[in-house]
Every structure is written in structure tokens, then in C-alpha cells.
Design a protein around this nucleic acid. Sequence first.
DNA 1: AAAATTGATGAACACTGTGTTCATTAGTTA
DNA 2: TAACTAATGAACACAGTGTTCATCAATTTT
Lengths: 213, 213
Amino acid sequence: MNTLSTDLRAIKTRAAIQSHFIDLLLEKNFNEITVKDIARAANIGRGTFYLHYTDKFDLLGKLMDEGLKSATDNFQPKAYFKEGKVLPERLVGYALKMFDHFQEHERFYRAMLFNEGISSFRYRMQQSYLKKFRHEIQELSQANRMSDPITMEILPIFISSGMIGLVGWWFKNNMRISKEYMARKVFQVMTKGPLQVLGFAIDEEGEDELRKK
Amino acid sequence: MNTLSTDLRAIKTRAAIQSHFIDLLLEKNFNEITVKDIARAANIGRGTFYLHYTDKFDLLGKLMDEGLKSATDNFQPKAYFKEGKVLPERLVGYALKMFDHFQEHERFYRAMLFNEGISSFRYRMQQSYLKKFRHEIQELSQANRMSDPITMEILPIFISSGMIGLVGWWFKNNMRISKEYMARKVFQVMTKGPLQVLGFAIDEEGEDELRKK
DNA sequence: AAAATTGATGAACACTGTGTTCATTAGTTA
DNA sequence: TAACTAATGAACACAGTGTTCATCAATTTT
């Protein structure tokens, strides 16, 4: 396993390995994929694989890292708030950009999100987004009256987890729903909460009683 | 692999395998756990393992199924709404019951949620909760004016994903936050949305403009 | 363009874990 | 007590792993 060789041959080999590995992930369980399979698919000798990666877990891990890095780099935090107020159009635009990204890297996300044998991608993806959102929210709320620290911890978790669930569903439905619709729903959930979006009203008396405790 | 033998010896063996397997999961990566390891930990012969499970994936899968079934069976849908209105105290109670369950089965959830090598537990857990929530919400909204079908699909996804993210965080923090606090936050997010809970206001002009499009 | 460097090849190797078989032992049920 | 059946442990063939090495071939460098 070499440390990033820039030799043309090495670059081509790594590209072939990665691309065919994703193909394999799309068609069968990661557990059932052998280094032999990968080498055969990429048209290289099995030994050559070990010149670049220590094992298939190493390959998978590096793919994940690259993919997640490219994702978070891509979403530059536009100012979607102003004087403590969320700007709906900006927030929708931000969500839209995320869906653009997912669509562009469809093969990667399908492989990573749906392969039965893949460990921890959803978790790593969530951690990656969580970090991003937490950072943004902290910056945004600096100028304003803030919520308690635990709330500041918890809410970004809800947002990042929810987004990943949503994207998974969107792919499962072959992206039939427009990105615009999805982005707008994300906005609604963020600002009103799932139950109100679903059309439920909240009993005010009950809420008052809760507050007393 | 037998079909549920009720022989005392068989029951004891299965219990030993399952319990020690969870121990192993708590201390090392699933990928690195061999059948030999499991057999040694459970004090049985390696061949005996194969009398009960076809391989370690089979064991893992069965553990997951049992655990997830016991979870959803546990949350009996109390009527946390009335005439289209959500009853806060009831909803908080429902969330509280979920946290009770997670605490009770801490070892199981820690093993399943945090083992690096475990594939798809989070996904299966989400699917399991999704099914449950979708069903409940559909029943609840039968009598009332409903949202469009896509919204009915999407929102439960947000809820189930968010809950799982939250529980993971709660465990990571060694359950330092009280279940009561967690349940109340869940209620707030459900009814107000993450951004309002965080203290952000929504710009109304921008919202109006969005609606026009 | 020639020389030096480095990647790729394929065969060979020891090793680890897998899943199965089978005769024997020992615990459980009727 | 007798009949049953789970557990044992050793043996087996097999598949995949990760490494080595001499040789060939592509690429940089001079």
C-alpha cells in the first residue's frame, strides 16, 4: 500500500478499483465480495490490490471518507438567517443544493446506503452532517438569545438524522419526487415540526399543564 | 441448525451464545469476531454453534429481529390525540416509555448501535419504527382532514430517523440526561420543529413569497 | 532517446477461519 | 429405566487472505 503515488498507472488502477467496487456493492452484499472479485472486476491482479489498500475494509473506509468530505465541502453555509430570523427562501435553497449533490453522486450513495453488509456508513454520514450543522447553528445563534446547551446539542442530531432518512427514502423511490418539493418539505418540518405539517393541532390546555411541571 | 428445540440444554446453549456474543460485540468489531471466539466465550464446542446458527450473520440477524420485535411490541399506541388535537401529556408519556425501553435493554442497543462492523442495524431499526409510526399516524388522521400522501410518507421517516439519532446520542452520553427531559424535547421538536425549539423565528414575508410559487 | 524508477503480474506460500461429518459421551424427557 | 437428542472434539476439504519474488512493462527523469 503506497502513500498516494501520482504515477499514471497507479491512478488508473485506483480509479478502476474504486469504480468497479461500487458496481459490486450495487449488486451484492459487501460481506460476500472478496478481494479476488474486486481484482477480477477491475482487471488487475489480486496482488496489485494490496499495493493500494490493506484490505477491502480499508478500501471501503477510504471511499466513505472521500465521499463524505466532498459532500460537506459542497454545502457552503449561505446566510439563511438574518437578525435571528430564518429566511425561508434561502433555507429552501440550501436544502435544494443538498439534493442536487445526492443526485449527482447517486451511485455512491445507493451503494453506501443500501448495501446490506456495509457497516456504519449511515452513522458516519450522520456524524459528518451533525458536525456541519452544529457548527452552523452555533454561529447563527451567537448574536441572538440562545437555547440551553443540551438543546443546542440535541437539535442538530434530529436534523441530521432526519435528513439522512429522507434522502434514503428519496433514492428508494428512484427520485420520483422533485428536489424542489423535497426541499420545501424539509423547510416545513424544520420550522413547524412533523406533527403540524401532518395537519395535527396541539392541545393548548395540555401544553400549559406540561409547562407547569 | 434446529427449529427451536425446547430441550433445556439447547435453551441454555442458545442463551449462552447470545449473551456472550453481545459481550464480544461490546468489546470488538463484528468483523473480527470469529465463530471460534463465540464458542470459546460461551464455553461450547465450535461445532455446537453450527447446531443452532448457520453462521455469525445468522446469529446477528436473529438477535436483531428479536430485539426489534420486543421494542415495537412494547410501545402500545396510547391515544395521544383527541379530535385532531395532539395531547401533550400523552405524547410525552409515549416518548418516555420508549426511553424506558432503551434503558432496560442498554447492552443490546449499545452493541447494535455502536459496533463499527455491524451492518444495517440502524437501518432495520428505522424501518421497524417507521412501520409503526406510519401505521399510528394513518389511524390518527383518518377522522381528520389529512395532508397529501407524500407528506404522509415522508414525515414518519423524519420522526423515526430523528428518534434513533437521539437515542444514540443519549447512550453516548451515558444516559446522563433524564428520560423526562428527553421526552419533553421530543415533544417540542415534534410540535414546533427544530428551528423554533432552538429559538429562531421564521421570517413571515419570506414565507409568503415561498407560498406564491 | 536512453536510463532509471516504479507499478503490475502471476505463481507460490503459509495461514486462518469455515462449515461439515462422525463416533462417542452425557444430559433430558417420557 | 429406556429412548432420545444435544454436546463434544477431532478430522477434513475448502476458500480467502496477505505476503514474497523474479520478471515484465509503463512512466518519469535526465
